[in-house]
Nucleic acid binder design. Structure first.
Lengths: 333, 333
DNA sequence: CCTATCAACGCAAACGATTGCCATTATAAT
DNA sequence: ATTATAATGGCAATCGTTTGCGTTGATAGG
């Protein structure tokens, strides 16, 4: 097997020293033109590329960031990673991606792996299982900054980017109110998700602002399974005072909810019962009985923003934590 | 700023040599128990993690693979990367992801970046612009194996994993035939995509096997824009002999096609005109007027398989090229 | 008391690239 | 011819880790 292209290899073939080769490639003034050209030509011929890992020792930077998301199969996270990669690329950084699959154990293993690779910074959407974030402390020993996004832990002194679900939820109620809805119900996801509380707080406050009473029986939950969603919707519709609108955790849940209405009831969608939801998945506009409104959370933009903040932390080491939120947007279908 | 945890740091604090620390951490027999315990304890306390980049010099492996896809925003590629990451994780490899955004120039930049990082192997779905793959030759100089998947170049001596669209397309015609369709049209994507030809060959052969004539005017194209898709469908429907079924490039195109039928014509979906397509996107089952059948291409499985092949190439360097194809599957809605 | 044996650990080189400092030329000025 | 000076490029150290080999000190056998 032939020798790999290295500075030493070039040096050997040209019978000069490695330092000369290095300087020639960097256009250092103390290298003669003939030598410089010879080096550059051979470098091109051998397709020489400097090895980043050796450069790390000098610069103390790997120009690498890590990303941990629960899964890449979910459109939201894939788009967020897409935004992250875009910003990273523009800044000549490479991106390690990994999936926690909502397992805290795997999250820990990934943290160890990334630490060994001395990433310059980390972006995380935490797993459902993750209630506390002490396992992220390893990173502090290595001065590796972390920015949480979307699924963020409920702590104070951390960097995070989220969608401001609280205010947009209030606005969502406002929109439904203007569409003459008064009896509004809420279909939440599992309690462990922080964003759940945001939605609920916004819902309650939004209702209060319109002087609408919040019926506790109007707030139900699902673990995202079709069964629980169907149950939850069924429970809502069996109230004496049937709600006219239901705010649903996200578009996937709303799909099951709509299917329930269509197959299990005689209710007319968008007449007897109206859905609003979060996510704005790209196919929604193709649905026949779509939710009236949805909250766009801009995953791509969230990814971009989180990456920008991280790069800022990497280059200008600060102590204070950055907590930014992207404004959501109401989308009418 | 405090010192980073390194072997040297541990050695200094314990007043032993770096080699002793290294051996202690690796349970080398020639290290005394007291020393060993002291080292291990301090290592834990400092949260020491060996740095991969230094280990590279010894092992000549980065335990890293690179992935280049056109975009992560597309469900198919996101799922493929998900499968890749899964296999990589199981084998203690990390994954660099990057998007070419269908630009050959960016593809080249990414190749250079990955080469500098000395990835152990590369997985690629090439950009639409990529007609020839000579820019991948850099990798050969560094003995970095490449496996192409899904969007593969049209060459012989390369490793690739694709979905066998040829045979499944024949089967698709068979299915439509059994549903009593005789006048079947084909709506393709842009010619530059290799998978396009596969679909067409399968279509033509499938029709031949049923002794159906292939009307050249029945084969149209779109660049995936809504306008071109609408035009193409419109053109098909304006034939004297209107087709009763249209095989469409993928589910996204079919969405626009269906919308065209619903908004621009009086035709009854799945009665006057029936769609078949490729992809099996997860939301299709929620559509009211869905295509009857779709070809599932198993992106996750393709990613897994490509990653497995790549790891095999990394560990058992072979010269012959591996060309595998995953069987597609017809999904009835 | 001398030497063989062995446990326990240090030294130094290597991996690839960079860089301050020094050494060797060649050229020009005197 | 001699010296000054610029042009050119080599030496060695550094980064963190591993590993062959050598060294130290102690214990035991003779």
């Amino acid at each position: 097997m032939k020798n790999l292209p290295t500075i030493k290899e070039i040096a050997k073939q040209l019978k000069v020293s490695a330092s000369t080769v290095s300087r020639a490639l960097h256009d250092h003034p103390s290298i003669g033109l003939r030598t410089k050209n010879a080096v550059k030509e051979l470098a091109k011929q051998l397709k020489y590329e400097p090895i980043q890992t050796a450069i790390y020792f000098k610069e103390r930077r790997t120009y690498t960031i890590g990303v941990i998301v629960p899964t890449l199969s979910e459109d939201f996270f894939a788009k967020a990673v897409s935004g992250i990669e875009q910003i990273a690329f523009e800044n000549k950084f490479s991106v390690f991606v990994a999936q926690s699959h909502d397992s805290i154990e795997r999250e820990q293993q990934l943290l160890e792996s990334f630490t060994r690779r001395r990433i310059d910074g980390l972006l995380v959407s935490i797993s459902k299982e993750t209630k506390q974030v002490s396992h992220f402390d390893v990173l502090k020993e290595y001065n590796i900054p972390v920015v949480f996004f979307d699924r963020v832990p409920n702590e104070q002194h951390i960097n995070k980017v989220t969608c401001d679900l609280y205010h947009i939820s209030i606005k969502l109620i406002d929109v439904l109110y203007k569409l003459h809805h008064r009896k509004i119900a809420l279909l939440l996801g599992p309690q462990s998700i922080t964003a759940n509380a945001e939605r609920m707080k916004g819902f309650i406050n939004g209702m209060a602002k319109k002087r609408l009473k919040v019926n506790p029986a109007y707030i139900v939950e699902t673990d995202f399974s079709k069964e629980q969603t169907w149950n939850a919707v069924s429970k809502l519709l069996s109230q004496k005072q049937r709600p006219t609108a239901i705010v649903v955790f996200n578009d996937w849940v709303v799909l099951d909810a709509i299917q329930f209405i269509k197959t299990q009831t005689d209710l007319q969608l968008n007449k007897d019962i109206t859905f609003a939801s979060y996510a704005n998945l790209p196919f929604c506009k193709y649905l026949d009985n779509k939710p009236v409104v949805s909250v766009e959370q801009f995953p791509f933009r969230q990814g971009e923003e989180a990456a920008r903040i991280l790069l800022d932390l990497i280059f200008n080491f600060k102590e204070e934590s950055v907590q930014e939120s992207i404004a959501g947007e109401i989308v009418f279908y």
